[in-house]
Structure formats: structure tokens, C-alpha cells
Design a protein around this nucleic acid. Structure first.
Lengths: 351, 351
DNA sequence: CTGTTAGCGCGTTCAC
DNA sequence: GTGAACGCGCTAACAG
């Protein structure tokens, strides 16, 4: 005696399962949610019906009733082709895996204008669309996010933060990145070390600069502001800046570059000018993308430990979610790692 | 006289807005959904209250009640670091923009084992989590997806399809890709043209091979199966295959490569063997990623028109969604475009 | 151990 | 032009 087997959506509901199994909706709900107060016998029976009817709980109804929503919003800045950026795509991949491992869903978002100005990022919480949010690589232009400091919407930065604002974050130690890279160059005997910087509206670029200058200072090398060039992550612009520097000042024997793609482009440009690497000039990148192994010479780079950072970020977010009202105001710093290949002329090749 | 302003979630509900505005829930709902039967006066009043209370409709309640869900699931294969693959990240970016433009949400998914075997991909529909799905670059191992042919869950392939299965798709004409690339090489006088193929469990690779062989045949060049090498998208494996070929047969004067990164790696390897490009050997890629402009020599490549493909895919998906039961069984083919740079020795540089 | 019942927040038909 | 009332599918006290 089968009764109605589909609702208006063409979907099977908990009620039909209950009817078919000869129990109440509650019982079905209990077995589905692993409530232990159900006899093994009815449990199996219900599960059988669920199987044969291909019953799948309506997520919207479940969310509404339980006041929960197992989805996390991952936000990335709105640069040109952000998803093609090796750094962000790695970050996205890392965050994805960790969130999926928690059995949560991911919804993607670019930090577009509307996202910011209409406070859409808060509305996602108010409308119960998401229960947590991770912003990967925000910039210093994103101060509108300071709103999160007051709210108790679970929100965490990955590889960025807002100076002066109490919002949890996880990021690689970028001062250390600058230190590691610069010290490596120094240890190889370089004294005129140029830095090709990333966007200055980024804490990562800012901190790498701090490390760079600190390393020079500690080594007793005079800082020359003319050697600090560039203010973007564009490879073309980086090449242009380097070429311009070389026009006026040929003293630089090494380049510390904001990321690997930029470093690669600079090596190409240097090559075209007839300079050999590392013979005539050393180049070091930051990021350590897969690609850096493939090029010649293989690029020495500082590994940003993106996956580890992603893992810790997600971990922190979930802590924040579980904490509820009581704030979890712990941020975390990840250790970067120098990967020595050949672009700086070291023999000691690791990867 | 403000009454209760927050519910158990700490959220504002439609009821509170109604109370504050001195109207009924229906009225609020009507203005929110632009029902014209509301006087301008009350409309404004309600909207004011909505603003001041920061009211945001509960998506779950709305979805449940309206039996709709404005979210699309974007699926990518589960290769190693799929999001870092330039091809997939471009595709993802394109699809993202189009879906966002439709004011829909994106939820990401890797086609993991569980995704396939537990028929999770169908459950996403059954549970009302999504109202449409796009699979970017599926493989011939994904025949489990044939289930969609029977269902009326809106599903579309981007740049892949299942031979013999009636599921709509949009893809770039890969036979044409093979034709374009091979003919270009032929027009430059090459007769011994090697093909470094992508994974054979992929319709794109398969079709490119068809185009390759067709071009040879039409030019009266004898096909030599020894010149068709490789069966993966791994740059390292591609290099290995090329090196192996060169060990036994040095007759190849040109390489048609499955994608740009592989092409780049092969150029590097060739360089290391002392071969100059394009002097000693021509190399052409498929994809035309940004990066291919930056390298030296700039890579000649066939542009896969990823963004156009993405746009059409999303368009087709929405047609399918709107069609409901009545099937929209139209697939679409996109024209690829040859981009001539210097890696094949042409003077006629375009980009 | 299981069923009854009352919401969850919103959309919508049908009177008024 | 507006409101009362019911339904969406599910969870969770509270009984029994």
C-alpha cells in the first residue's frame, strides 16, 4: 500500500519515509541524525526505506529548523584573473580540502564592490546562507571588514589582517620571509640587493619589506631606497621597474622578488639583456610554486607554506564557530621555509 | 514601542519588520518580491524599516517555501592540484563571473570518489541544495554521470561530454584545435610533426588527435604513430616522452603539445639539449594562457576561448533550468583561434 | 523506545 | 491594497 511517493518538487520527504516504514517522522529524523534512542531493528528498517526511496533530507528545511548551515564562504580579492593567480589558486585549493574534510560546503565569492559597499558580506550571515567566512589575501583597502570585529559572525583572515583591528587571522610570517630571502642573498656575498616589491596595500608585501630592511641592517649593509622598487604583483610592471633601475644604476647583483612569476619574468628580461643567472645576477622569489622547479635555472624561493596556512585557517574558523558568543581571539603565525635551487648560485640544491 | 527585535538566532525576521511597519507579513513579503499590488507609500515605509532593522530574509526559509534555490554547483575533476591548473582556473573564473552575473551563488566541488560512488551528485539536487550543475572537463572515466541523461536535473558539461550519452554540453572544437595547430606547422614547411598528447581519457585530447591526423592526411603527409607520444597532462612526463623520442628518432622538427605549460617545459628541455627554438625545432601549445606571452620565445598557441565557452555553458545551463521538464537538448561548439607568436618561427606576430 | 505537537521564517492563495 | 491562514520539510521538546 504505497501512498503518495513524491511531493510537488518531485522529491521524497521524511513523511513518506515514515509512512512507508510505519513509524513517525520523529523516528526517521532520529535515525538520520544518529540519535541513540532508537532500537537497532527500527533503525535498520528506516534506513532500508531511505535507501530504496532514495530519500535525501531537504537541506533548506533542515537548516531552517536546526538553525544551522554547513557552508563556508571563501572570499578572494577581485583582481583581474584572480583564480589564475598561482598563489590564490593554491590557497583556494588548500582551504577547499580542509573545509570539505569537515563535511562543510564551500561557496566562493569575489570581494567585489557590491560585496563591500552593500555590506553583502554581513548579509550572508544574516540570511543564514553561511555559518563562517574566510577571506584569503585581503588588502589594506578592505577596512570595511572591520565590521566583523564588533559582530560575532565567525570570520577569519588567511594571509592578511587589518592592522589595529581585532579579527582573527592565520598567516605566514612575512617578516621572516623577507629575512630568509635577504639573508640567503647576503650569505652568498651580495651587498647590493634590490627588492621588487608587491602591492604596498598588502600586509604581506609590507612585512616582507620590513624583513628585507632588517636583514640588511643586521648585516651592516647600508639601505638604499633606490633599490626598493615596484608596487604591484604584475609581472610586466615588475620587469619594467627592474629595467628602469638597471638604466640608472647597474650596481645591483641580486633581486629579491615578491613572487615567483614575477621573479621568472625578471629572469627572462635579464636574460634578454644578456645577463646570465646566477652568474651575473641572483634572483630569489617568494611563494615556491610548482612551476619554479621546471624553469631554468630552477628558482630559489621562500616557500609560503600555503597548505599549512590554509589548514590552520580553517581550524581557527571552526574553533570560532564552535565558540559561539565567547570570542576565540587567537591568531596564528606560520613559519616560511627557504628552498634553495640554482637561481642564486648555491650548490646546495634541495628540491 | 519596539517589541522583540531579535529571534533565537539573533536575526531579524519578516514578522518584526511587519510589526514595526504596522503592516502584515504578507505586505512585507510583497514589497520584497516586487509585487506591484502595493501602494508606493507603504512600499517606502516597509523598505525604510527593512533598512533600519538591517532585515535580511532567511534564505533557507525562502528556498523552502518557494521551492527554489539560487545556487549552482561547479564541479572539477579531482586531479592533483586542480585549482592550480591554468586551464581549470581560467574555466572556473569564467564560469564564476557568468553565474554571479545571473545573481546566483556558486558552490564548488571536486569530483571525488564519494561524489561519484554515492551518487552524491544527484543528492545535491534531491536535497534542494542546488538547482543546477556544471562539470568542467570531465573525463571518460566519469560515465556514472550518464544518470543525468534520465533525470531532469539541470546539468551541463563544459569542455567535455560523454560520447553516446545525451547530456548537453558546450565545448571548444578540439578537432579544429588539432587542425589549426598542425596546419600551421605544415604551412611552415614541417613534415615530421610530433604530437605530445594529453590524457587519452579525455575527449579534448582525443579530438585534438583526430584533428592532428586529419591535417596530416589532408596535406599528404604520412602518419607515423611513433610521433604521437604522451598520455597525460604532466609536464614532467611530457618532457620525458619527448626526450625518449629524441633518443630513438631525431627526425621530428616540430612538436604540437597538449597545453602551454607542457609546451613550455618541452622548450626548456629542448634548450637544455642545445636545441634552439624555433631555429632547430618548432613548438606549439594549446590553451594560450597569459603566461605564454611572457616566456621566450613567446609561445605560439591555439586559444581555447575559455571565457566564451564558460559564458555559453552558463547560458545553456540557465536555459535548461528555465525549461524545467521540457528538455533543452542543445549543445554548442566554440571556435578556437590560432595565436601566432615566435615559437614556430613565424614573422607574423599577433600578440 | 516512539509518537504528538509545536514551531523554524517565509511565500502565497483567497477573502475582505 | 491588505491580512489571515495554511504549507514548505524538518527538528526537538514533551509526553506516553
Amino acid at each position: 500500500m504505497t501512498k503518495k511517493v513524491k511531493n510537488k518538487n518531485g522529491a521524497v520527504t521524511i513523511e513518506m519515509v515514515a509512512a512507508e516504514a510505519g513509524v513517525s517522522k520523529t523516528t526517521v529524523s532520529f535515525v538520520l541524525n544518529n540519535n541513540p534512542t532508537i532500537s537497532e531493528k527500527t533503525r535498520r528498517k528506516v534506513l532500508d526505506i531511505v535507501q530504496s526511496l532514495r530519500y535525501q533530507p531537504n537541506v533548506n528545511a533542515r537548516n531552517l529548523s536546526s538553525r544551522k548551515n554547513k557552508t563556508i564562504c571563501v572570499v578572494v580579492p577581485e583582481f583581474g584573473h584572480i583564480f589564475e593567480d598561482p598563489y590564490f589558486s593554491r590557497a583556494l585549493g588548500g582551504v577547499y580540502d580542509e573545509i570539505e574534510a569537515m563535511d562543510y560546503r564551500i561557496t566562493l565569492r569575489k570581494a567585489s564592490l557590491s560585496f563591500a559597499s552593500n555590506k553583502e558580506f554581513l548579509n550572508l550571515f544574516r540570511s543564514s546562507e553561511i555559518s563562517g567566512m574566510i577571506y584569503v589575501g585581503s588588502t589594506l583597502d578592505d577596512y570595511y571588514l572591520a565590521d566583523f570585529a564588533g559582530s560575532d559572525f565567525p570570520f577569519v583572515f588567511m594571509n592578511s589582517y587589518l592592522p589595529g583591528v581585532e579579527i582573527p587571522y592565520v598567516m605566514v610570517d612575512c617578516v621572516k620571509v623577507g629575512l630568509l630571502a635577504t639573508n640567503h642573498l647576503i650569505s652568498l656575498g651580495h651587498k647590493r640587493i634590490a627588492r621588487v616589491a608587491g602591492s604596498s596595500n598588502t600586509v604581506t608585501a609590507r612585512d616582507i619589506g620590513v624583513g628585507y630592511r632588517k636583514a640588511l641592517r643586521e648585516a651592516g649593509i647600508e639601505y638604499d631606497s633606490k633599490l626598493e622598487i615596484g608596487d604591484t604583483y604584475s609581472p610586466e610592471a615588475a620587469v619594467e621597474a627592474v629595467l628602469k633601475l638597471l638604466d640608472s644604476d647597474k650596481s645591483a647583483t641580486a633581486f629579491m622578488v615578491a613572487n615567483d612569476i614575477m621573479a621568472y619574468s625578471i629572469m627572462e628580461a635579464l636574460n634578454r639583456k644578456g645577463m646570465r643567472i646566477p652568474g651575473d645576477c641572483a634572483v630569489i622569489g617568494c611563494d615556491n610554486i610548482d612551476f619554479s622547479r621546471l624553469i631554468s635555472p630552477p628558482l630559489t624561493s621562500v616557500d609560503l607554506k600555503v597548505f599549512e596556512t590554509a589548514r590552520e585557517t580553517v581550524r581557527l574558523l571552526f574553533k570560532t564557530i564552535e565558540a559561539g558568543a565567547e570570542k576565540v581571539q587567537m591568531s596564528k603565525i606560520i613559519e616560511p621555509k627557504l628552498i634553495i635551487r640554482s637561481s642564486c648560485g648555491e650548490k646546495n640544491i634541495i628540491a
